[in-house]
Structure formats: C-alpha cells, structure tokens
Design a protein around this nucleic acid. Sequence first.
DNA 1: ATAATATTTAGATATTTTTCTAAATATTGT
DNA 2: ACAATATTTAGAAAAATATCTAAATATTAT
Lengths: 99, 99
Amino acid sequence: MAFSSVVFKALADPSRREILERLRAGDLNAGELAEGLPMTRASVSHHLNLLKQAGLVRVRRQGQNQVYTLDTTVFQEAMQWLMTFFQKESGPVPRNRRG
Amino acid sequence: MAFSSVVFKALADPSRREILERLRAGDLNAGELAEGLPMTRASVSHHLNLLKQAGLVRVRRQGQNQVYTLDTTVFQEAMQWLMTFFQKESGPVPRNRRG
DNA sequence: ATAATATTTAGATATTTTTCTAAATATTGT
DNA sequence: ACAATATTTAGAAAAATATCTAAATATTAT
C-alpha cells in the first residue's frame, strides 16, 4: 500500500492516537498501554501492530515485556506531505533549492 | 467526532488524496474531479462530501457546476498535531513563547 | 413548462476494520 | 520441565466504509 495510506489510516483511529500520545512521555510496554483503554489486550495488540506497520512505533523485547517507542521519522514524512498543500502549483516538490 | 479523526480519516483514502492533489493546481468542479477516477460520479460525490465535512475543501455553486477549492487551514491544524510528536514531554502544547 | 446537463441522495451490496474470546507463543523463576 | 506472567495470533461477529444503480434535485436554455 502507498506510504500515506498506511500512515494516515493508522492516525485515523482515536485509540491509536491515544497510544501515540502516551508514548510521547516515554516508552511503555503493551500491558501499560492497554491499561485505561476500553478494550481487551488483544485489541490493543492489534492496534500496536498497525502502528508498527505504519512505522510510527518500534518495539523491542525487554524480558517478558514488549516495549514500544515512538518513531518520529514517519511523522516527518506525513508532515511533508501536508506541507505541499501550502504551495499553490502542483508538480514535484522541491526538496532543496540550491542553484 | 474529534477533530483529528475526521481529518485523518479523510486523508486515509487514496482517491481523496488524489482529489486534494488535483485541487492544488486550482479549483475544479465535481465533473472534472470525477474524470480519471475509477469510480462513478456518485462515489466521487460521496468522497467530496467527506472532504467537505473534514474541512479540507470548500464548495460553491457556479451555474450548473459545484466548484471545489482547497481549504488549507485544516492542513495546518493536522500539521500542528503531528508536530507535537517532536517534543519529548507530553502536556499542553505551547502555542507561542513570549515571556 | 420542458428538456438537457451537472450533481447529489437513497438504498443495497461488498469490503474492510474493529473488537471479542479462546488458544498459542515467549520469557522468567522454581 | 512446569507454572506464572506478558503478549500475540486465530477465527468469528459487529460496525463502519466504499461503491454501485436508480431516482431526485438544481440550474440553464428553449
């Protein structure tokens, strides 16, 4: 699927945005992320998987836990896509303006 | 529905992003927007409605046509949301930094 | 008022997404 | 190896979304 679709689809769900916002304060494991969300751990796990596929989070094992971290690079790419809409003319987006 | 959900949901569909990208070059009416998209005019109309609800486009009648225009203010808000993810600490986002 | 053109709305169907329960996998401690 | 804990995977059911055809609405010209 095209870059933007996975990312924007991932961002389109309130539970997933909630997860991302919690991760802003620091890494959390799956159990911690599931707490407070009105759904089962299995469902949270599903959302985490979508976020991972979108490249918005990374995961590493730490003992029994799966620890999730924000990965901000994709946020940047999404921002860049949005930013093109402030330039009136369409066409390839200039990345730098030497010469 | 919360601000971000409608907006990100609107952006999550490739056909709708295609529509937005065409509108970058200038206003187009519903018929023009439907051309080239692999679906009926009714379906395009549906997508346009979602974009309108998200505040991403405006529409005005011009004779027999409905003319669609980009509205960039919501793009800005979406960008702002994304931008908060580059500040590690969570909490209310400072809008300006006088004082 | 009628016809022609442009677009939307209604209702139906197909696909995708969300969520659940139950079972499976992985790690740690005994 | 076995039990306890953390998390994911599988499969099913419910809810949301995308798309179609047909009918309805709005504008313009005759």
